Simulated scan of single mutants.
Amino acid sequence: MLIPDIEAFEERAAIAEFDGGLSRAAAEDLAAKTQGFPSRDRYWQWLADYVLARKLP
């Protein structure tokens, strides 16, 4: 089971965006992939599901 590290995600995305010159979407895709998610959409969906269910999926 993947459990996202939000702080690491945000930091990696910010670095990729500002230092790497990527768009925010591309930077978030990269950050999500480093945590084992196929895309940023899947990453954010996992978090949304967790918040709504108040338990790990």
Rank of each mutant, 00 (worst) to 15 (best):
Tyr43Pro: 06
Leu2Arg: 13
Arg54Met: 13
Asp49Trp: 12
Ala53Met: 12
Glu7Arg: 10
Phe9Ser: 02
Asp5His: 11
Ala13Gly: 04
Ala26Gln: 04
Asp29Ala: 00
Ala48Thr: 10
Ala25Asn: 04
Ala25Val: 03
Ile3His: 08
Gly20Tyr: 13
Leu52Cys: 09
Phe18Glu: 13
Gly20Arg: 04
Ala14Gln: 12
Ile6His: 06
Tyr43Phe: 15
Ser39Thr: 15
Gly21Gln: 03
Gly20Phe: 05
Val51Trp: 11
Thr34Arg: 06
Arg42Pro: 00
Asp5Met: 12
Arg42Cys: 05
Ser23Met: 08
Glu11Cys: 05
Gly36Trp: 04
Phe9Tyr: 11
Gln45Glu: 14
Leu22Val: 06
Met1Asn: 11
Pro57Val: 15
Glu10Trp: 04
Arg12Met: 07
Leu52Thr: 12
Glu17Thr: 04
Asp49Glu: 15
Gly36His: 01
Gly21Met: 03
Asp49Thr: 14
Tyr50Met: 07
Ala8Gly: 02
Trp44Cys: 02
Ala14Thr: 14
Ala8Glu: 07
Leu56Asn: 09
Leu2Gln: 13
Arg12His: 06
Ala26Glu: 09
Leu2Ile: 15
Glu7Asn: 06
Lys33Asn: 13
Phe37Asn: 03
Ala53Ser: 11
Tyr50Trp: 14
Leu47Ala: 08
Asp49Phe: 14
Pro38Trp: 05
Gly20Met: 04
Gln45Thr: 15
Val51Tyr: 15
Asp19Glu: 15
Thr34Phe: 09
Glu7Cys: 09
Lys33Ala: 06
Glu17Cys: 03
Ala25Cys: 12
Pro57Ile: 04
Arg24Asp: 04
Gly21Trp: 01
Met1Thr: 13
Phe37Gly: 06
Ala13Val: 04
Asp19Trp: 08
Arg12Cys: 00
Arg40Ala: 10
Lys33Pro: 01
Ala14His: 10
Glu28Val: 00
Lys33Asp: 02
Ala16Asn: 10
Ala53Asp: 14
Ile6Ala: 08
Asp29Lys: 01
Trp44Arg: 06
Leu56Gln: 12
Asp29Cys: 00
Glu28Leu: 00
Arg24Pro: 01
Leu22Met: 14
Ile6Met: 10
Trp44Gly: 00
Ile3Gly: 09
Pro38His: 01
Arg42Val: 13
Ile3Thr: 15
Gly36Pro: 01
Ala31Leu: 03
Ile3Gln: 12
Gln45Asn: 13
Phe37Cys: 03
Pro57Arg: 04
Ala32Asp: 00
Leu2Ala: 12
Asp41Val: 05
Asp19Arg: 14
Ala32Asn: 10
Phe37Glu: 01
Ala25Arg: 12
Val51Cys: 14
Leu47Ile: 13
Ile6Leu: 07
Phe9Met: 07
Trp46Leu: 04
Asp49Gln: 14
Ser39Ala: 05
Phe18Gln: 08
Thr34Glu: 15
Gln45Ser: 14
Pro57Phe: 13
Asp19Ala: 13
Ala31Asp: 02
Ala53Lys: 14
Glu11Asn: 09
Asp29Tyr: 00
Glu10Leu: 11
Phe37Ala: 02
Ala32Trp: 01
Glu17Asn: 07
Glu28Trp: 00
Arg12Asn: 02
Ala32Met: 11
